[in-house]
Amino acid sequence: MPLSTPQLRSFVFGLALLAGPLASPAEEMAMEEMQMDAMMDSMQMDAMHGMDETSIELFDAAKAVLNSYCYECHGATKQKGDYRLDQKSTIYSPGESEELPVVPGKPDESALFKRITLDIEHDDVMPPPKKARLKEAEIKAIKDWIAAGAIWTDEDVRSGLPTTYVEIGDEATNALIDKINETRAKAEYNAWGDNSVRVDLSVTDKDKLKEAIIGLKDFGTRLAWIDCSYLELSESFYKNISQYQNLERLHLDNSNVSNEDLKALSDLPKLNYLNLYSTKINDDGIAALAACKSLNKVFLGSTKVTKAGVEKLQAANPELTIIYK
């Protein structure tokens, strides 16, 4: 480890100023985690070696042989001579006789292989003389497996066989997303295959809202979903909303949207979800929604909209689902 304790201590002490009683366990943890880190990283290399089809086939063949001949005495229940051959953590380590059961790549140095190939008269022969002998093909399976590196692929490693995975997005859009995310607005791909984007403006840092709205413009028709809940937006923002011609969902709940602002929405040909919960909208405002032909869901709870207003809108647009009470 390239870390010395005094250095670590000074770092942790900095934290200690604030954290007080936490410092000591934190120090231990930091040490422990760094050691783990190093160990894990090298274990990672092991795992990576084990992930091709051939080594899995070899392992399966060898494991089947071990299973039928060895595990009665060198498995989970008994470990004669302190050798256990049914798990990765022990298959490479010596037991009482201080021989290595399996030396990756070297069958001739592996006690396992040596013993199964000994003459039946030999003291060290395995399996013991009274038990069944391995067949030629089975001995070969063990040999091939060891020779190819004796890779032990447990269940978890197997599931890691590479699967196909298509990443969405393109460079230009990525750059726009990164840029607007600097304002802490949350932009991400909608990921339904068309590289369209949704942006949550409501979580933007308050002093960067203007910047975020400027950044939003660059998305243009890429934008399918905007969340403006809880925001105080300018009149011109609403007026210019039709520049996002592919907008499908718009959250204006708890925002300052006014009756007048809703008129611009009819210029959005794909808008299907509109949330106006807890706004100052009233019947006059929603009358304008009758012109939004693509709309199929609108939320009007906690507004000044009356039952009469809802009925009128419903009559004008029978397909529309109005969530009102």
């Binding site: 783990m36 894990m40 990283d41 990672q44 290399m45 795992a47 599931s159």
Partner: peptide
């Protein structure tokens, strides 16, 4: 497939 720090998937 996501790899843990120990390299397991």
């Amino acid at each position: 497939v996501v790899y843990s720090p120990s390299g397991r998937p």
